[in-house]
């Protein structure tokens, strides 16, 4: 299911009259960050292209940048702490060759998380970004069961010092938003991709997959890339190279 910007605004507005995730933080701010004329449109499909050959062992710039951007903090309980993005090490047992690559929500075109969500809290924006409306999420965790990429985290404890542009709350589920707040204010990049470039690895490329003039679209067309679990046919917005 994709939700129109209008419906999203309505949901936000309805929620804002009643509940706030934390004092002063309203979902509607997220929606309003984009200028009203500029609705999330189906003309765009945002995505990432990740080159695992450029990603290096031990580097965690993308992870740190994401978690700083959204104030994802650790309580030193790795099993229950939220992680929107993680570095995965994948070793070929035959050759011993090791790949390093970040994994986050793959922003599936046919997202299983959205299909199973009973309330519609998990939704896909017209521009392909998959989000959770924290005001409707009842914390059933069915989406986490359904996600093939382990991309989602349940918030297991109280959250403090939230960023105004990232509504979060104990008892709800969250995942990578593809830095929707940055996209909507026109940054045209994500925190992870920015950090990776800054560090000099340039392994993460962000862009509009549907605009054939963008670098990401060109590279997707001319260079080999693949989706994780391609057998599931989810048409992920995040693709990988070098695997």
């Amino acid at each position: 299911m994709s939700i129109s910007r209008r419906k999203f605004m309505q949901a936000g507005a309805a929620a804002v009259t009643g509940a706030a995730i934390a004092p002063g933080i309203h979902l509607v701010e997220l929606a309003q960050a984009r200028s009203p004329e500029e609705a999330a449109s189906t003309a765009k499909r945002w995505g990432l292209l990740i080159d695992s050959e450029k990603c290096t062992a031990g580097c965690s710039f993308c992870v740190d940048a994401c978690h700083t951007e959204h104030n994802i903090t650790s309580n030193n309980r790795p099993e229950t702490d939220a992680q929107w993005i993680r570095k995965v090490t994948a070793k070929d047992p035959d050759t011993g060759y090791t790949h390093y690559l970040p994994v986050m929500c793959q922003h599936c075109e046919k997202p299983p998380c959205v299909d199973v969500c009973p309330t519609g809290a998990s939704f896909k924006r017209a521009d392909g970004i998959v989000l959770v409306d924290k005001h409707i999420c009842i914390g059933c965790r069915y989406c986490m069961m359904a996600c093939p990429y382990k991309a989602r985290s349940f918030i297991h404890e109280e959250i403090t010092n939230q960023k105004s542009y990232v509504p979060r709350g104990k008892g709800t589920v969250e995942s990578c938003t593809l830095c929707v707040h940055k996209i909507d204010r026109g940054d045209n990049n994500t925190a992870c991709a920015e950090a990776c470039t800054e560090f000099g690895n340039d392994a993460i490329l962000f862009g509009d997959l549907s605009d054939l003039k963008t670098e990401i679209a060109k590279r997707r067309k001319t260079e080999p890339s693949r989706q994780l679990r391609s057998d599931l046919n989810l048409n992920t917005g995040v693709r990988y190279q070098g695997l």
């Binding site: 570095k87 070793k91 093939p148």
Partner: peptide, 16 residues
């Protein structure tokens, strides 16, 4: 564990 990378030996901070 979820088989995100079938056939590979996988590890991460998130229990992959």
């Amino acid at each position: 564990p979820l088989q995100i990378f079938p056939g590979m030996e996988v590890s991460s901070s998130f229990g992959d």
